[in-house]
């Protein structure tokens, strides 16, 4: 396939290697992550490994916290696509970080149902308590505060998602110090998690 019938494109010519992200340190999947990725690839037809790009990028984040240019190139190699294909995906989805973030990324839902229940106050209180602006990380590298769009937990508003994988629900502005202290001392185990079960039973 070529983009112009008169151009002498040979094998590989139309494959862009462009990647504008900072290269960062060298990157390769650990044996464990590579094995996890290969297992995930079996969920799709053998010629459709590209379907596992999102999963591969989550594994990059699990390994080094955020996604660099070198990581994108490695993912491209492992998946069998171009680095541009990977960058295209990385820059589209909001759950991929392209810069270093804190140990705990506090993502406060800001959309209507949470906002009607005080999400603005929660974000303001968190920023005041940690002395950062949204999208900034504390000097000790522990916390990043972000606003997030609807998390789909509107009956437990306002909700905070921590590190893409953990939830803390019904957060009140006056309780943010407790949330922060809990994470400092008890880690992720201190979060309320998704408490539907507890509440209903």
């Amino acid at each position: 396939m070529s983009f112009h019938p008169q151009m002498p494109y040979g094998e590989g010519w139309h494959k862009s290697e462009r990647a504008t992200a900072e290269p960062g340190p060298p990157f390769a999947f650990s044996a464990e992550h590579r094995a996890q990725l290969e297992e995930l690839c079996t969920h799709y037809p053998p010629e459709r490994r590209k379907s596992a790009i999102l999963a591969a990028l989550y594994l990059v984040q699990a390994q080094q916290g955020y996604i660099t240019g070198n990581a994108m190139r490695h993912v491209a190699e492992v998946i069998g696509c171009t680095a541009a294909d990977v960058e295209d995906v990385v820059t589209y989805y909001v759950m991929f970080f392209t810069r270093p973030v804190g140990t705990y990324v506090l993502q406060v839902c800001r959309t209507l149902s949470c906002a009607l229940n005080g999400a603005e106050q929660v974000t303001a209180a968190l920023c005041r308590h940690l002395q950062v602006a949204p999208n900034q990380t504390t000097a000790d590298g522990m916390f990043t505060v972000m606003e997030f769009e609807c998390l789909g937990a509107c009956d437990r508003a306002p909700v905070v998602m921590v590190n893409n994988e953990h939830w803390h629900e019904c957060q009140r502005p006056e309780d943010v110090a407790g949330l922060v202290d809990g994470l400092r001392t008890g880690g992720l185990a201190s979060l309320s998690t998704c408490h539907l079960v507890k509440e209903r039973t």
Partner: peptide
């Protein structure tokens, strides 16, 4: 339910 001074 709104903050007095919403953060940017």
């Amino acid at each position: 339910f709104r903050a007095d001074e919403p953060v940017a």
